[in-house]
């Protein structure tokens, strides 16, 4: 793991001289383009009018290209508000998860105590949990804590549930930090908190970036929990909000597709801007095996 996550150095050290067979490459290109077809189809549809599509069919040359679907989705269908809610859920949940898991990782690595391994195993087991298992009790819990139908319910749940993966990744990351660094700081009179803040956190940064990129996508894309923990329209995140629009715009595919594309923009931006971190985040849990 350390190689992929900590050191994003150019890894293609040697090129194998002979490239792949042109036939093989052709097949790869075919599938790559096929994989993009849903995107292309969605983009084309979203710029066309409902009538144009309905009466003239998908293959006709569009008479008019329009931004109307996006404008309607954004305003009339309320996508702008849903999008804002998504950020209001995702960012705090992300911060809590990342902060708590760095603390946890530091604690688990820095101190030797009997429960360290069981606690670690507990987090790792949690990352595999089918989250639907938690559905009912989490609903009752949110209700009991009087945070049902508030963004807090989602923020707390997401940050807690994502702790499993975050602790798993960061704890392994922390393991690669030379222990002597902490020791010498301690001798210099720094408190544990200061060591954590000044030494451990900066060293964790590449791992944190990878993690944050991935976690942003995961939390942002959640659908189920928002259905169960929220009832007010004004609080709904984009995923649930969009699904909710199906009732109203059920046969208005251009509008629905335009809304879906808007919903994808934030995660796409994060992906393209932080692509390397995203990939590192995905692989970080797997390649140290």
């Amino acid at each position: 793991m350390s190689a992929t996550a900590s050191a994003p150095t150019p890894t293609r050290t040697r090129k194998i001289r002979r490239g792949p067979n042109p036939w093989v490459l052709g097949i790869v290109w075919f599938f790559a383009l096929l994989w993009l077809v849903p995107f292309a189809g969605a983009i084309i549809t979203s710029f066309r009018t409902f009538d144009d599509l309905n009466t003239r069919g998908f293959w006709s040359i569009p008479q008019t290209l329009t931004l109307h679907n996006f404008v309607r989705a954004w305003g009339e269908a309320g996508v702008s508000r849903y999008l804002l809610n998504s950020f209001e859920i995702t960012i705090p949940a992300l911060l809590i998860a990342v902060m708590f898991s760095s603390m946890c990782a530091y604690g688990l690595v820095r101190f030797r105590f009997r429960l360290a391994t069981p606690i670690y195993v507990m987090f790792v087991a949690g990352l595999m949990l089918p989250f639907q298992v938690l559905l009912l009790p989490v609903f009752f819990l949110a209700n009991k804590l009087h945070i049902y139908d508030t963004l807090w319910a989602l923020i707390f749940f997401h940050s807690a549930f994502q702790l499993g993966f975050c602790v798993f990744v960061l704890r392994n990351f922390m393991k690669t930090v030379p222990f002597s660094l902490f020791e010498s700081a301690l001798i210099d009179g720094a408190s544990e908190w200061m060591i954590f803040q000044r030494i451990a956190l900066p060293l964790l940064l590449p791992g944190l970036a990878a993690l944050a990129t991935l976690e942003f996508t995961w939390i942002f894309n959640d659908y189920l929990w928002a259905i169960v923990l929220l009832q007010s329209d004004r609080l709904k995140p984009i995923t649930t909000g969009l699904a909710n629009l199906r009732g109203q715009y059920i046969s208005d595919w251009p509008l629905m597709v335009a809304g879906s594309l808007i919903a994808t923009v934030p995660t796409l931006i994060v992906f393209f801007a932080l692509q390397r971190y995203f990939i590192d985040g995905l692989t970080v849990g797997a390649t140290k095996g």
Partner: peptide
Amino acid sequence: FWLLVFLGLPLLLYGLWVIYPTIRT
């Protein structure tokens, strides 16, 4: 003390929203 500082809140959050609901199920 330091264990409590570093692990206390995360464990509380995790216990409340993940471990307890699992057992409750």
